[in-house]
Amino acid sequence: MGGATVLKLIAQRIALGVLLLLAVSVLIFAGTQILPGDVAQSILGQAATPQALENLRRELGLNDPAYIRYFRWLFGILQGDLGTALSNNRDIASALSGRLANTLFLAACAAVVSVPLAILLGLLAVRYRNGIIDKAISGFALASTSLPEFFIGYLLILVFAVKLQWFPASSTVYDSMGFLQRLQAVVLPASALTLVVLAHMMRMTRAAVLNVMQSAYIETAELKGLGPLKIIRRHAFPNAIAPIINVVMLNLAFLVVGVVVVEVIFVYPGMGQYLVDHVSKRDVPVVQAVGLIFAAVYITLNMVADIAAILANPRLRHPK
């Protein structure tokens, strides 16, 4: 019975996520329709004559009602066709896939380091709470978060690229690069991102676990004579996991969609830079596509967080 309820809950979450994504796609499409001028006008620019505009509108199917164009766009996306960029006539899907892969690679590198590190530091801070280790960890994490990411980036470049010359100053990656070369290229930006997201996750871990540590059953465990590390591992952490997963997912989403500044500083060819370039050229199809992908990443990660929280929380698994 319990298993079926969980499955139902999860199915509900997924359905909700898909619905939300559809709603976002409507919003994105409507938003770009409100902008003055249409795609034909942006393509032709100043050289637009009424006849040329009319021809191009017919060619692009812009004379159809908005809802028909929306569904055409949506079905195109479902088939993997994101359209063509106005500014350079390149296929958006193929241009984007490389950028998306780069962004995900950088985010993954940063996540692989930052998530375990943050949780470990959080647990250590709880174990030695209010002691010197706790204060040192918190102080370091808060300081690194308070510094703006561009400052951390420049600092890393100055020390490790210009002075020590261990890593390249710019992280340009391209197809013909080997995996190890790529790793070396992203060491600095991934470190910068790690420092940016570390404190949020670490502090949340510490707070959530400390909260559980106030409970009566922890006291029982202590009275049983269990060691502090074992108590944290066996009793406190599993019960504090839901909020930790939530904050981890939020930070993962940030690593994918919020890294424009780091991308620019380290000259990393990711999605953020791609979006900014096209926004400034009013290249609407690209902006729509990137907006939708960002929304999908956010919704998916939040959905995963929800589902993980359901699985981890007995109260949600067995609703009364």
Binding site: Y154, P168, S170
Partner: peptide, 19 residues
Amino acid sequence: IIVMNDNTARMAALQSGQV
């Protein structure tokens, strides 16, 4: 030609001999 739109990134790349 590597696109480096950030001023500091360009200077760092030149100083470290990357470009």
